[in-house]
Design a protein around this nucleic acid. Structure first.
Lengths: 247, 247
DNA sequence: CAGGTAAATGCAGGTTTTTGCGTTTTTTGA
DNA sequence: TCAAAAAACGCAAAAACCTGCATTTACCTG
């Protein structure tokens, strides 16, 4: 067995069980404990696992760095699955940034063939992991806090596109429409909506009934409102008449 | 048996089993292990397989998000510091992708004010963490394996730029110049070099004296060659007359 | 077609990696 | 505090690797 192969198996074990024992690995891999220890040591040096006395632990097990993108993890996963049900083979899809969108990108089926256009480098990198997708990244000046490309160039470019679908991450949504707090982002979102035949607004229910400073669009421009709640939830009832479809 | 034919068989084997052993291949193909090794080496340089001690692995074998970005960590950090010493306040800097470039991006002083232009979303995201930098991300079709924007649009855009500096990640460099294995990337790199007053080539010494299929530029176009080695190292001696400055 | 050039391959050697095994040191838990 | 488990250290053998070189083969070119 190749060394790298063995180390990959160790990583797999750790991701599965969140921990491994040197003695266990020695048995299952048929190598001496010394070799296992050396492997664990190497992987630890490469920052892939956490070495402890007797074995090793998964890194994510006690890492605090990126909890923001797992905030409301369950909810966002439900939203992702609902949103994905609207995506069909061969579509051209415009998307903005946001952690909800990231959950969607991650949950896409790997055999899906489609074209995604996005101004978020983060989303683009998630999407490119799916080998059958074509990913177009819109460039421009990167916004420091939202981490997406903004500016006239992006808006111009979006205006040249006609997409089948757009998936909008939402920061504020109430009866009066969709709102946001950053002027540049609002411009981009307006352009996206304009360039797409069908508009999907995906958001956790927490953001419903909250309004921010700047208006993006009216609810009647939204074709689908997707939240983690069942479509007959009382929270959503009030939106029924304003939005075309609620999932 | 033809060389190409043999290499095709190797690829087939790897796709089938996710790995191959040099010794196995030597037997089944009826050639010496040296020849197998040379084949594997070539395929690895062309980015088709991953060469490891004892054989090779399929590229998709363990695509956990960020495994190889700590390879040669120490070396890359030295390179980063040397490279940074050439960056001055207010400069406009063009950069490609690559893990060495990523190490540089991470090591930048946080008070540096400068404009960075890149076609790599990964690098862009690293750079944007530095609050005083302006980051321009060049968009386009994302290349599946190199994870940078490629295509005519990117090249066109680069041609509109005049930068003070470009920092080139290197895949192959010998007396005859800088080489790479992907046609699209070569186009982008050529454009970058053309658009910059000063060209820096940063690479770990491992990649010196290795040549890939496609030529990017001659050494005389390179102003600074930066490696982790001290500038009077014998390995670098031979490059002294070809490159303007060696750090 | 002769002669020259370049590519491909195998081989000899020296070097580096990998691995297991004693031995010694450190950690852990009672 | 002590003994068992785990880790670290040093060593040696085997496997894999690299480098340079010689041989063969294919490919030009006049």
């Amino acid at each position: 067995m190749l060394k790298k192969e063995r180390q990959a198996l160790i990583i797999k074990q750790i991701n599965l069980h969140n921990k491994v024992l040197s003695s266990d690995l020695s048995l299952t891999l048929n190598v001496s404990e010394d070799t296992v220890r050396r492997d664990l040591h190497e992987l630890a040096q490469e920052n892939k696992i956490i070495k402890v006395h007797g074995g090793a632990l998964s890194k994510s097990y006690n890492v605090t760095s990126q909890q923001s993108d797992t905030y409301a993890y369950e909810e966002k996963n439900i939203i992702a699955l609902k949103t994905i049900s609207l995506i069909k083979e061969g579509m051209t899809i415009l998307t903005s940034g946001g952690t909800t969108m990231r959950a969607i990108a991650r949950a896409l089926p790997s055999n899906l063939k489609a074209t995604f256009i996005t101004m978020s480098p983060l989303i683009a990198l998630e999407l490119i992991e799916h080998p059958n997708l074509e990913v177009i990244l819109l460039g421009g000046k990167l916004s420091n806090d939202s981490k997406i490309s903004v500016g006239g160039e992006v808006v111009n470019r979006i205006n040249e596109i006609k997409a089948d679908l757009c998936i909008l991450g939402i920061n504020g949504l109430d009866f009066d429409g969709i709102t946001d707090s950053d002027w540049e982002i609002v411009q981009v979102k307006k352009a996206i909506i304009n360039a797409s035949r069908v508009v999907i607004a995906s958001t956790i229910s927490e953001k419903l009934n909250s309004a921010l400073r700047l208006k993006v669009c009216n609810l009647k421009e939204v074709d689908y409102l997707i939240t983690e709640l069942p479509s007959d939830s009382p929270t959503l009832l009030a939106f029924k008449e304003k939005v075309n479809h609620i999932l």
